[in-house]
Simulated assay, not measured.
Amino acid sequence: MTAPAPITPLTPAERRIAQHAVNGLPARQIAVTETLSHHTVRAHMLSLRRKLHCPARCSLAVVTHRLLSANEATVPVPDTPAPDLSPEQTNLLKAVTEHSKPLDIARGANIAPADLRAALDQLLADAGASDTTRLVAWAHGWNLLTAEQTSTERSEPVNTSPVPTAAGQSPAPLLQRPAPLPPVYEMRSLRTDAERAEAAALVQDRQRWLALRGLPVPARADIPALFRDPQAEPAGLFEDGLLLACMILQREPDLGWGEGPCLFLGHVHTLPDRSDDMIRLITLWASDFAARLDLPRVRADALARHPLDADPIARFLNRLTDMGWDLRGSGTGQTGERVARLELAAEHRPGLDALVGCSAHQSRSAADERSVA
């Protein structure tokens, strides 16, 4: 059993989301209850998983156990009295709090994998629980689980089987090298209708967030519709399957400004509550990606209905220049709206692929309206 790493305390918003999850609400119902978009709920869930050291592979039952053990959520009151579990069922319950994969649960409970489904069904029936997440939450209410248990996954066993050797030689243990960790983030083309629809929904959420704060949004183009169009070849930045940002990548477009070829980032939209972090990450990635394409510059533009030295655009542009972008004045965008023009030097960044994987198209030229929102 690996020692549990200390968790980072959750924010009040994350605790509310966590409590709903422990109480059995699905993500979309949580969104309705909290008056949030489902993207924001997913972002909160991703953040609290990270703080609990429960990656995406961890089941919600494991996450629930970790939350309740760390007192980051209130233990729900069970609907039924505590069941009289057998020792074998108690072991199975504990295995469910520690493991997510069926094979690992079976091993942890010392049950034959073929018998696991029947044993779980019997445990749920005896406890009166509809699923393993509800079972774990109620088990805390029945005091069947001690606080010392953690929901961190067990370490994968290391293969120490002796290597066959010639007679008279001592066998040497064979240690398996751990597989390299996948990148934390992934930039990839949005290839399916579902992914493009998710990007369109993110754009709508972002534009709604901007409008509620009196910030400008494009008025002369249907940007969500552009992301639904497969011909636009949209791309998205993901973390554990969650779409964090989306954009249109274009190579050497005819912008009417700037010298030399470039990679253009069009229609960049991020989750409302993670804008600066995502723009900073996109900046690093785009600089490196352009360098790999032998393009000397990255360009983008930002909707600017106010003078560039006046708020709110001035604060935004200052943050971008702090990230390495150069302001190249302003002009009229493709839809006739005024934009600030931005440029970034391409730069190879060794090691960045360990942070951001990339399977995006190498972009194309287009004459669509472009904006950074």
Rank of each mutant, 00 (worst) to 15 (best):
R251M: 07
R213W: 07
D193S: 10
L237D: 00
A194I: 11
L210N: 11
Q231D: 13
A219K: 15
R220H: 13
E252N: 14
A221E: 13
F227E: 03
L174M: 09
L181R: 10
L242S: 05
P234M: 00
L210V: 12
R191M: 04
L249D: 09
P216R: 02
R213L: 15
L237W: 13
A232Q: 13
A179N: 11
A225R: 01
A197K: 03
R213N: 11
A245H: 08
Q231W: 12
P230A: 14
E186R: 05
L210F: 15
Y185E: 01
L181F: 12
C246I: 04
I248K: 06
A199N: 01
Q204P: 14
D222Y: 06
S189N: 08
F238T: 08
A179Y: 04
P180Q: 01
A200G: 08
R196H: 02
T192M: 01
I223C: 04
L215A: 15
A219Q: 15
Q231P: 10
L242D: 08
L190M: 03
L181P: 07
P224V: 01
I248R: 06
L244T: 01
M247L: 14
L243K: 03
L210K: 09
P224M: 07
A225K: 06
G214S: 09
D229T: 05
F238S: 02
R251F: 13
A194P: 11
L210W: 15
L249S: 12
R228K: 09
P180H: 08
P216E: 06
A235N: 04
D240R: 09
M187D: 00
R177N: 09
P218E: 12
C246P: 13
A200D: 02
L242K: 05
M247E: 03
D240T: 04
D193C: 05
P183V: 10
R228A: 08
I223G: 12
